[in-house]
């Protein structure tokens, strides 16, 4: 390692604040770029599930209507 101690690595001769804040901001944004699409995908799965269920309910309802109509 270039630095003699962990303290020096953090302090970086007074430049530590700049260097570490730049890296931390970058990491936060990059983690966001991974998490956001994964969350979106989860939401889409839920939406599609709902879509399928609604379709099934609709189908059942039209079938029932047809059946009722043929009986009456």
């Amino acid at each position: 390692m270039y630095f003699d101690s962990l303290q020096q690595l953090i302090f970086m001769d007074g430049h530590g604040v700049y260097v570490w804040s730049a890296f931390i901001i970058s990491i936060v944004v990059m983690v966001g770029l991974m998490v956001k699409p994964l969350y979106q995908k989860k939401q889409e799965f839920k939406n599609i599930q709902l879509h399928i269920k609604l379709q099934q309910v609709n189908q059942a309802a039209t079938q029932k209507e047809a059946l009722d109509a043929s009986h009456s």
């Binding site: 390692m1 270039y2 630095f3 970086m12 430049h15 260097v19 730049a22 890296f23």
Partner: peptide, 28 residues
């Protein structure tokens, strides 16, 4: 790359340790 750039690379002769920001700035 992060560990290498932050802890092992030598500092810049003129800019000192602040140059280490290059390791996210340039790739981004």
């Amino acid at each position: 790359g992060l560990v290498w750039g932050l802890a092992y690379a030598p500092p810049d002769a003129k800019q000192g340790n602040s140059f280490r920001i290059i390791y996210v700035h340039v790739p981004a």
